[in-house]
């Protein structure tokens, strides 16, 4: 394909996706009235007051840490529980396998809002008593991430050529050994997919965090929502908060990208 055409398409999409980011960063250093009245204009005056207000609120450092902790734990728990289960569904035929698998898929189909009240009771002081701590989120996050995790990983495990697994068996690996040393490494691209997907869903999750956390010890989406006003959103300040949230994450993604992509492809089966 023509190089120029290719770059033209890519640049078009770059404008579409990068512009909002740029807009957000610009809005963060503008005056509220300026953003409201001339959203797409050039800033008339640059101010750091919004960023200062966000950092001064003191909640974002904590929220950042909380989000990272909860997401990491949730992703890890989903993977630790989901991968063996997916392996069993893919490679250890047992009676009722298909029915059980469908049961796991059910979780994807329920809108989260109707589970809020039951979960609130389950985790509240009358139940597990975890409500208000970060622990309260990890269970539901991992639980609701399991369907996708199992679905994707089962596919990946099924795609591994039978011979490879049999060869491992010949070399004296048990099931667990085959799973740990052959299946898991070969499924690396799928695992990376699952990790990214789960991480992003948990990173943006609002309803559970609102219900189950102590608002003074929130995750990022809850902390950001605080900058909404009584009747409408305070744009400049919200954007400043979003910059604090998004830019470090993007920077890390950008820096680590080569490793992520390598990780995504390294283990792939090359036939």
């Amino acid at each position: 394909m023509k190089r120029s055409l290719r770059y033209a398409v890519l640049l078009c999409f770059l404008v579409l996706t990068a512009y909002p980011l740029l807009w957000m960063a610009l809005a963060a250093v503008r005056l509220e009235g300026d953003v409201q009245q001339n959203p797409f204009g050039i800033p008339t005056q640059v101010t750091l007051a919004n960023l200062a207000a966000v950092l001064r609120s003191g909640i974002f450092g904590k929220a950042y840490l909380n989000s990272l902790l909860v997401c990491a734990a949730g992703v890890a728990a989903a993977l630790a529980c989901g991968a063996p289960a997916a392996f069993a569904f893919a490679r250890l035929p047992f009676r009722g396998s298909q029915a059980l698998f469908l049961t796991f898929l059910l979780g994807m189909m329920i809108p989260v809002h109707v589970t809020l009240i039951p979960l609130n009771r389950l985790l509240g002081s009358a139940g597990l008593g975890l409500k208000g701590t970060l622990w309260a989120l990890i269970g539901p996050y991992a639980g609701f991430a399991l369907p996708v995790t199992i679905l994707i990983l089962r596919g990946a495990f099924e795609a591994i050529p039978r011979d490879l697994l049999d060869a491992a068996r010949m070399d004296g690996c048990g099931h667990w050994g085959t799973f740990r040393h052959v299946a898991l490494p070969l499924a690396r691209p799928a695992i990376a997919t699952v990790v990214i997907f789960n991480f992003l869903s948990m990173w943006n999750e609002f309803a559970f965090a609102l219900t189950l956390l102590d608002p003074r010890n929130p995750t990022l989406p809850i902390a950001i929502a605080r900058f909404k006003g009584e009747h409408d959103i305070e744009i400049a300040r919200t954007c400043a908060a979003l910059c604090v949230v998004v830019l470090p994450l993007l920077a890390v993604y950008c820096a680590a990208q080569r490793h992520i992509i390598r990780g995504l492809t390294a283990g792939a089966v090359k036939e």
Binding site: G58, F60, K62, Y64, A251, C254
Partner: peptide
Amino acid sequence: MRTLPPLACASVAALLLGCGKPPAD
């Protein structure tokens, strides 16, 4: 793009400075 990692460090540092102050408790 080379400038991004330092930028990331700077923003993380700013963040940590920001959270040094505990919220009004």
